[in-house]
């Protein structure tokens, strides 16, 4: 795990870890994963859990523009000025990896508009197993898959599953209904990821997003240290 990833000195790239006034900028966490795996629901749950203690904002990268942003607005997880939708021109992975300029602009605008923030969650549009965030955009990334998408996904691997700083296997409550083998998913994920952490979660269960929220707090403490 790389808890300290210093990007100081990259100038205009936007990855610099400090604001022009010398204070540390918000931690930027990316959430990626296939369509329907529960990225937006995880973002909403994280916002509810963390907003009493942190100043945070969200950037969504939709395929059809504002769907995810509008879900978050409807759920009222954050005030509207804390949610920005980036449009991706039919290529969601391009906007988080190959050409991050619109997302960098969005995170900087959020900090300008809202004052200093602790945390910015950047959600990718639903994509495939190869989609990852550029290190120029985020400080760490979470890859969200779900049991209903097939319990062979951890075994198949791909950059999201193998290299994300946290792998979330979502919708564990559905496992008995779709015949998914949770123990096998966990073992396959462990084999693919060595020491990198994996969380199995059901947002409908009592614990909900608590384990992921705890991981986020740990990253933030390391970032601000």
């Amino acid at each position: 795990m790389h808890l300290h990833r210093h990007h100081d000195g990259l100038g205009g790239s936007g990855a610099a870890a400090h604001r022009p006034d010398g204070t540390r900028r918000a931690l930027r966490l990316g959430l990626g994963g296939p369509v329907g795996s529960g990225k937006t629901a995880t973002v909403a749950a994280l916002c509810r859990q963390l907003r009493p203690e942190l100043s945070l904002a969200v950037v969504t990268n939709d395929i059809y523009t504002r769907e995810d942003a509008e879900f978050l607005l409807r759920e009222a997880v954050l005030p509207p000025e804390r949610i920005t939708a980036v449009e991706t021109g039919a290529c969601p992975h391009t906007a988080i990896r190959d050409d991050i300029s619109a997302n960098l602009e969005a995170v900087e605008e959020l900090e300008e508009r809202s004052g200093p923030l602790d945390l910015i969650l950047i959600e990718s549009g639903g994509d495939n197993l190869t989609a990852t965030f550029s290190r120029g955009l985020v400080d760490a990334q979470i890859f969200v898959i779900d049991v209903a998408g097939g319990d062979d996904i951890p075994r198949k691997g791909g950059p999201g599953v193998t290299t994300a700083d946290l792998l979330v296997v979502n919708k564990t409550d559905l496992a008995p209904h779709v015949g998914a083998d949770l123990a096998r998913m966990a073992a396959d994920a462990k084999a693919q990821r060595a020491e990198l952490p994996v969380v199995l979660q059901s947002l409908r269960g009592e614990a909900g997003v608590a384990e992921v929220a705890a991981w986020v707090r740990e990253r933030l403490a390391a970032w601000q240290a």
């Binding site: 021109g89 290529c91 190959d98 050409d99 619109a102």
Partner: peptide
């Protein structure tokens, strides 16, 4: 077209 200046999201 791969120059990373945001053009890919515009038609």
């Amino acid at each position: 077209g791969r120059f990373p200046a945001g053009g890919h999201a515009h038609s």
